[in-house]
Amino acid sequence: MFGALLVAGIVHGLIIGLAAMAVTLVFGIARFPNAAAGDTMTAGAYAGFLAHRATGSLALAGGAAVVAAGAVSLLGYLLVFRPLARRPVASLLVAAIGVAFLIRAVLGLMFGHQQQVFQVPLAWPIEVMGLRIPPMDITLAAVAGVSLAAAFGVLYLTSIGRQMRAVADDPDLARVSGIRPVRVMVALWLLAGAAAGIAGLMLGVKTVVSPEMGWEGLLSAFAAAILGGIGSPVGAVLAGLLLGVAQEVSTPYVGFTYKIALAFAVMLAVLLLRPRGLLGRVEEVR
């Protein structure tokens, strides 16, 4: 049973990790908590659902989720967050909550509030070294793995990724070094949207698609972003995995009704012992 829960926890954790990455990237570079990340996930899930219903291909669904969530994310930046840049964090947070409401309302109007379900083939588990793993979990883990590899590839192997990290490090120094902030911001919002879109797609395939799904999952994404160390994409993914595994593996012993509470207990414990999070850095306040 432990092994099966570990597998479930890893898949659960990858979803949280991807969503947390979307949150932490924005926090690191645009410097505000993006409350619209959850609903960007939902937009990705609906786009993936439509593509999957039309074609039956999970790969195309992933592509549609990335494109749609990236577009929603970028639109949010161009129409709302860019005009509000350099305002206090609280204004941006409230604006992000507004964007979240807007996305949810539009999805509700377009698709209704009843649940939609991905018609994926259900298969009996396959045995891997005595562990019974549902094939869909392997597929989803692979999707997440590829997406994470692509995201980290962009961040660490490309010029725009280097520029993003430079802006995250020190925006003013980045500007005097000749980095054009708008290009970096566009890349950031596209990347964050794409990560959220894949997270939404995975959540949608595992559960059911409804307009509220992303908003309801936002809290654990924030928890993982804080736990991983604000602004650290690697930390966010690790923290997501930690939370997912901790929830699945421990709740049979502490009680299932504490599932949500447990994630926050883990977060509290880590923050008390290591306030900067897993991979965060201590920032000097000037």
Partner: peptide
């Protein structure tokens, strides 16, 4: 088993019952 709403997975809950 009493479970919480809006979870991405109910496998732990199910396995406890199925065991």
């Amino acid at each position: 088993v009493v479970y919480e709403p809006n979870q991405p997975s109910y496998r732990a809950e199910l396995l406890r019952v199925l065991a």
